[in-house]
Amino acid sequence: MAEHATHDQHAEAHEAHGTRFYWMVGAILAIITTIEVAIFLVKDTIGHELFLAILFILSIAKGAGVVMFFMHLRGDARIFQLVFIVPLTFAVTMCLGFLTIFSNYGGIAG
């Protein structure tokens, strides 16, 4: 049964990450958070757009780090990616949709 093979694959994926790896990921996430706070403190000097852009990229990187490595979504069974990424897409769509609609009456753009 082909479907059953995936189990063994993702079991192997788990073994691949040693504790050293987790410490490294943790350190990178800590550095990202530090940079975020740092640019927050100097946001008036770098301009609002640049601040937002950097912040979004860093936060997405941080979130992706947690999901991919701490939650092992990377390398785990496909189905987990499906049941997480599909609702995440819906959530982002909803958020952007709502913000767009409410910008018509005094929302983000107003």
């Binding site: 995936t6 189990h7 069974a77 189905i79 049941v83 599909v86």
Partner: peptide, 16 residues
């Protein structure tokens, strides 16, 4: 049948 743990699958869906 999907080769994954049932509770883990349920929890991922719940997280979604």
């Amino acid at each position: 049948s999907l080769g994954v743990d049932s509770r883990k699958l349920g929890l991922w869906a719940f997280i979604g």
